[in-house]
Computed example of a mutant assay.
Amino acid sequence: MTSNPEPRPDWEGFLRALLDTLDAHMPAEERAVLLRAIGAQIAALSPIPPEATLAGLEARINERLAGPRWGSVSIALDSDGPALVLTHAAPPSLPHRRDEDRAWIAPVLEGLHSGWIGAQPGAEAEVQTHLVSSSEGRMVLRYGA
């Protein structure tokens, strides 16, 4: 018995065309700024209510990520300083030679997680999320100074 591959999302063609167009017309850093803003806007359109615990925040974020099949996140306190470490498993990817390092999704996730965490009680507006590392099927981000 052979299994059928999972169907590709309907948005893949649109997203590939969008990213190719951005690549053709914008320097990499400008593109990253735009993609971070898109991530922040996604967070604003799908806000997470105030959560009293990291476990509660993690659960709400994972609920939001499950709908579009954007993977899952685990959140831990950073032992090296006042920050959170977010391990994002199975982030979206495009099977494309120019997306080997997932350069398009990293800034989107930075903006998305900054938006969601930054809207929580006690969060400081100037604190941002930054990619720490990326490997096949996993991205580690840090939210903190």
Rank of each mutant, 00 (worst) to 15 (best):
P7M: 03
P9F: 05
E12S: 03
E12D: 07
G13C: 00
F14P: 02
F14N: 10
L15E: 05
L22E: 12
A24D: 07
H25G: 08
M26D: 02
P27H: 04
A28H: 06
A28Y: 03
E29A: 13
E29P: 01
L34M: 13
L35M: 09
L35F: 06
A37H: 13
G39A: 02
G39C: 11
A40L: 14
A40T: 12
I42Y: 15
A43F: 08
A43N: 14
L45H: 15
L45Q: 15
L45P: 13
L45S: 10
L45T: 15
L45D: 12
S46N: 14
S46W: 12
S46Q: 15
P47F: 09
P47N: 07
P47D: 12
I48M: 09
I48F: 04
P49N: 08
E51Y: 01
E51N: 12
E51W: 01
A52N: 06
T53M: 04
G56V: 11
G56I: 02
L57E: 01
L57Q: 08
E58R: 08
E58G: 11
A59Y: 12
A59R: 10
R60W: 02
R60Q: 12
R60T: 12
I61P: 03
N62P: 06
N62Y: 07
E63Y: 15
E63Q: 13
E63R: 15
L65S: 11
L65D: 10
L65K: 14
L65A: 05
G67R: 05
P68M: 04
P68E: 03
P68K: 04
G71S: 09
G71Q: 06
I75P: 11
A76Q: 15
L77N: 13
D78T: 09
S79W: 10
D80P: 10
D80C: 08
G81L: 15
G81E: 14
P82N: 11
A83C: 13
A83M: 09
A83P: 08
L84H: 13
L84W: 14
V85Q: 05
T87P: 08
T87V: 09
H88I: 07
H88V: 09
A89Q: 11
A90R: 14
A90S: 15
P91N: 00
P91W: 04
P92M: 04
P92I: 04
L94V: 11
P95F: 00
P95K: 00
R98C: 03
D99H: 00
E100S: 03
E100Y: 04
R102N: 14
A106M: 01
P107Y: 00
P107A: 02
P107I: 00
L109I: 03
L109D: 03
G111Y: 00
H113K: 02
W116Y: 08
W116V: 04
